[in-house]
Write a protein that binds this DNA or RNA. Structure first.
Ligand SMILES: NC(=O)c1ccc[n+]([C@@H]2O[C@H](COP(=O)([O-])OP(=O)(O)OC[C@H]3O[C@@H](n4cnc5c(N)ncnc54)[C@H](O)[C@@H]3O)[C@@H](O)[C@H]2O)c1
Ligand SMILES: NC(=O)c1ccc[n+]([C@@H]2O[C@H](COP(=O)([O-])OP(=O)(O)OC[C@H]3O[C@@H](n4cnc5c(N)ncnc54)[C@H](O)[C@@H]3O)[C@@H](O)[C@H]2O)c1
Lengths: 216, 216
DNA sequence: AAGAAGTCGTTAAATGTTTCACATAGTAAG
DNA sequence: CTTACTATGTGAAACATTTAACGACTTCTT
């Protein structure tokens, strides 16, 4: 299935959820049509880029009119598989893990943290944000067919846990630890390194001067 | 100052903090030298890319030898301004904000959350992770000369707070809310949209098949 | 001391992404 | 129906980033 979708540039694919969320907002506001220019201002992506992104999926708009919100939304729903919910496991119910559990990724999305694991007996058996916390020793037993994991354990435990998750059948890991984990080539890992993001911002601030502010 | 640093590609600049952290680790382990190949395996960046990245700063290594860890470290310390600490303000001490305050960004870094603000009276006056929480009404009074802000308020408050931060003299914002905020061109904003990251991972998982695993 | 092995720094090629600019096809209005 | 407008979809150019390949120099080995 989805033979030709492989050709969609990764940069485009990363923007799709962003588009989806905004189109969803428009729809709940009762808006009927939208132009690439309007979208551009809202999501801060060049309008030509938006048109190009959409064009990979065919002609979604009408010349001289723009895009029909309803049509766009139902298209994205299909494309991003918004109908089926992807269940996610969270490993490490510490500061960051707790924040994620309390935040409801469901609000706009098709993802749901279904189960959480921790090594600390004090946390096991509790419920955080409506999600049960299980002991990490029960990982294999309780994981079910969940295929995506959010990793928020201490970095020293990251590689070990990654190995175990892979062994247990996980296909994708969202890794928040600073450790760059190694996994088989069949497993997808995205790293979100918050300390690096903050440092990079500071570096840009100091070394890449921006235009002077124009008073508005 | 730093006239020619402007030429360093953004993609390279984003990787610098990552390199720095790993070189720091090597140094505390007492390692004396390292090759681009070793670095590559550790940080998961192609070795040619690492050599290219380093080369923007001149000849940091020696042919046939690799890089001297001590030398590399002291170079990065200078380049990334690791000597001076950049002070940061955090706006919105909720789930995510609390996690950031409890996490010590200082451990490896040159950034420190110095002060936090919230609108909720119940939080004001408390201390989270050693950082005082002030009332948002006192923002202008208490901000001092902090120039970087982490924004973790509800998305409905994001644009309003961004406007106020800019007015108060902030030059860079790390925005964790889903709202794409608008700021004057003199202010730098990085968006980290965790829900989008999770959805993008799921999209890649479903639409971009990876190679079959090879048993090791 | 000479040859083998290793690794950088860089030139050039390949690949990926964004942006410009406009013909085109459709809308809107009289 | 005709005219004026509007905003798409895309070819081509510009820009950015990654990767391959290798000459030059260093270190290591014998
Ligand atoms: N909190 C932040 O703001 C922040 C920022 C940047 C990076 N990080 C990274 O995110 C990760 C988590 O950070 P945190 O602040 O939530 O840490 P934390 O110490 O608060 O939480 C870690 C949790 O993992 C659990 N744990 C430890 N070993 C485990 C194992 N083998 N299996 C399962 N659970 C285990 C602990 O019991 C604890 O509850 C760390 O790697 C940290 O470097 C956090
Ligand atoms: N928690 C997560 O895992 C997560 C994930 C993705 C995105 N986000 C985004 O991050 C932001 C924060 O999320 P959260 O879960 O921490 O929310 P939260 O509701 O727990 O925290 C928000 C905090 O901001 C404070 N606040 C509200 N208005 C304010 C104002 N005008 N000035 C100062 N403080 C104000 C509130 O009192 C509260 O303490 C939200 O925009 C959310 O969409 C959070």
């Amino acid at each position: 299935m989805d033979i030709e979708q492989t050709k969609i540039p990764q940069a485009t694919a990363k923007r799709l959820p962003l588009y989806y969320r905004f189109i969803n907002n428009l729809h709940s506001q009762g808006k009927l049509r939208v132009s690439s220019k309007e979208l551009s201002e809202a999501v801060k992506v060049d309008s030509a880029t938006i048109r190009r992104d959409f064009s990979y999926f065919g002609a979604l708009g009408k010349k001289g009119y723009g895009y029909n919100v309803e049509h766009l939304l139902s298209f994205f729903r299909k494309t991003l598989d918004q109908d089926e919910v992807t269940e996610v496991a969270l490993i490490g119910v510490g500061n960051l893990g707790t924040a994620f559990l309390n935040y409801n990724f469901m609000k706009n999305n098709n993802t749901r943290i279904k189960i959480a694991f921790d090594a600390d007996q004090k946390r096991v058996g509790t419920e955080v944000g409506g999600v049960d916390v299980e002991h990490i020793d029960d990982l294999e037993k309780k994981l079910g067919n969940v295929s995506v994991a959010i990793l928020t354990v201490p970095s020293s435990a990251a590689q070990g846990m990654a190995d175990r998750l892979v062994e247990a059948g996980i296909s994708a890991i969202l890794n928040f630890t600073p450790a760059r984990i190694t996994v088989p080539s069949s497993v997808r890992v995205h790293h979100i390194d918050l300390a690096v993001e903050l440092q990079a911002l500071v570096y840009f601030l100091k070394h890449y001067p921006l235009e002077e502010a124009e008073e508005e």
